[in-house]
């Protein structure tokens, strides 16, 4: 059960087509609804607002009417780092977050987390969120909570799990049916499923039959760097080796995925 059809470990990842993303926010709400994310009366302080998936708005910075904007959905990048040494996993003193080598998913174990927030400081993507408050649901609204995902308490960190419970459910089904393998559509995240634009593609980056692999063409010689010239990863040069890829036909968008000197072209330097 640990391997895909090709006999290599599964490595789940995502590619988000920024040409298609309209910034509608469906992915954000699909995620909250799927994962029992709490909500408050005032959510306008975004430093205290828990959004595992968050859509950012980028701009080319040009004056009217040459202004352009682009939306960029940001889940957890599920960094592989160097053989599982993702930034957050490396610093957790409680082993509350862990890199699963059989799926490539970075987990978060709420009952182990004691809220030191080292992982939040270590994450260069602001993908981790702290529960500053007790989660409170207004009258009646607990009815809509899903038993597939535990509700988190005040004082712990949480983040996108690539809807790990959906992976578990798919694996359980495969096990009962005495299968070793999962079909591509058997395990999809809630955001991928809900996206009205079909901008999010999810699957096994190690499986050449999966769309993510075919679109991204990850280069094993360079920690999965995309061979597709329109694809890029956020802060590629940090070496976090993220499993979320983006695509854009616009150079300024690709360039805003990393910090570049004014004279540099987008894309990681060859020496990386």
């Amino acid at each position: 059960m640990k391997h895909n059809q090709q006999g290599t470990p599964r490595k789940y990842g995502m590619v988000i087509d920024l040409d298609k993303c309209t910034g509608c926010g469906s992915c954000m709400v699909a995620c909250m609804s799927e994962n029992n994310v709490p909500f408050k009366k005032d959510e306008t302080d975004k430093l205290k607002s828990i959004t595992w998936m968050r859509v950012y708005k980028l701009t080319n910075g040009k004056p009217f009417p040459d202004t352009e904007v682009c939306y960029l959905p940001r889940p957890c990048m599920h960094c592989e780092g160097d053989h599982g040494h993702s930034p957050c996993v490396s610093v957790c003193p409680a082993t509350a977050t862990d890199y699963d080598h059989t799926s490539g998913i970075v987990s978060q174990i709420y009952t182990r987390c004691f809220g030191c927030r080292y992982c939040m400081a270590a994450c260069p993507y602001h993908a981790r969120y702290f529960n500053w408050f007790d989660p409170i649901w207004p009258d009646g609204m607990k009815e809509a909570l899903s038993p597939n995902v535990s509700v988190r308490m005040r004082g712990v960190v949480e983040k996108c799990s690539f809807c790990y419970h959906r992976y578990q459910l798919a694996m359980e089904k495969a096990y009962v049916e005495e299968r070793d393998t999962l079909e591509e559509e058997e395990y999809q995240t809630a955001c991928t499923q809900a996206c009205p634009s079909g901008a999010i593609i999810f699957g096994d980056l190690n499986n050449p039959d999966h769309a993510v692999h075919q679109i991204v063409q990850p280069d094993p010689a360079h920690h999965g760097r995309p061979k597709n010239p329109n694809a890029f990863r956020l802060l590629e040069r940090l070496g976090t080796n993220p499993k979320v890829y983006y695509m854009s036909s616009r150079e300024w968008v690709r360039k805003s995925g990393d910090n570049y000197l004014a004279t540099e072209k987008p894309g990681a330097p060859e020496s990386h």
Binding site: C24, G25, S26, M28, V29, A30, S33, E34, G140, M141, E143, A144, L145, S146, P147, A190, Q193, A194, C195, P196, S197, G198
Partner: peptide, 28 residues
């Protein structure tokens, strides 16, 4: 517990908008 888009539906095929996804909050 969750509103999802209906696969194969001629209008939206799996996709749902943010308002539709929040529909259970209106119900409960």
């Amino acid at each position: 517990v969750k509103i999802e888009g209906k696969a194969g539906h001629p209008v939206n095929n799996d996709g749902v908008c943010a308002l539709g996804l929040s529909g259970l909050q209106l119900l409960y």
